[in-house]
Structure formats: structure tokens, C-alpha cells
Amino acid sequence: MVQYSSDLDTVFTAVADGTRRGILERLGRREASISELAEQFEMTLTGMKKHVQLLEDAGLVRTQKIGRVRTCMLGTRRLTAEAAWIARYHQMLEAQLDSLGEFLERTKGDQP
């Protein structure tokens, strides 16, 4: 558990992107090869490899090469959906405080 605490940033980066969240959702249903993912998300193999690498670094995805095909599946982190949710929530919280700051600036002097 301890080794997980230091790398929230990696998880956060990994799930901050809509495509990568989509990949996680997709792999949650069934494993897929890189080329299948590339086709489904309409991007190049190189682009998809980068996304998968980021997810793999975060422990959210693992890959296995069988013959010439690299298959992607959900990683050893079992709480993928929860981790994604926590990261999104954190992002929302920070954005809310930014928004509150702007609101307070905007309404300065409006109230007694």
C-alpha cells in the first residue's frame, strides 16, 4: 500500500485524459490488443502505445505479448474505477476553489 501513496500523480495524470478513461472502461469489459484499441479510439498505433504506456506506468493497465500481439488488460490495481473517481474528484475540488476565488473577486463590493 505504501508504494502506492507516492504515485498519485501518475494515476492522476493517467486518468485526467478522456481517452485514457475510455480505455480503462473498455478494458474493464474485456481485454484488447493495442491495434484493437487504436482502431476503436480512432488513433495511430504510436498514439495508442503512448496512452497504454502511461496507464501501465500507473499500474492501471498491464500488457502481455503473445506472439506478435500485445494484449492489454486491467492492471493489478483493483480499484481502477475508484482511483479514477478519486482523481476526478480531486481535480473538481481544486477547480471549485479556483472558481470560488474568481467569484469572490467578481462580487467584491457587491455586499455590505
Binding site: M1, L79, E82, A83
Partner: peptide, 20 residues
């Protein structure tokens, strides 16, 4: 006992100082 993937096991802390 659940395995967690966030710092301090699932606590998030945010802080701001507002000029208000």
C-alpha cells in the same frame, strides 16, 4: 484494510487563502 491508491489512504486536502 482495503488497498488504496491515493495518498494518506483516501484523504484529500486542499487549501486556499481568499482575499475576502
Amino acid at each position: 484494510r482495503h488497498t488504496l491508491t491515493t495518498p494518506t489512504d483516501r484523504t484529500i486536502r486542499v487549501e486556499r487563502i481568499f482575499d475576502a
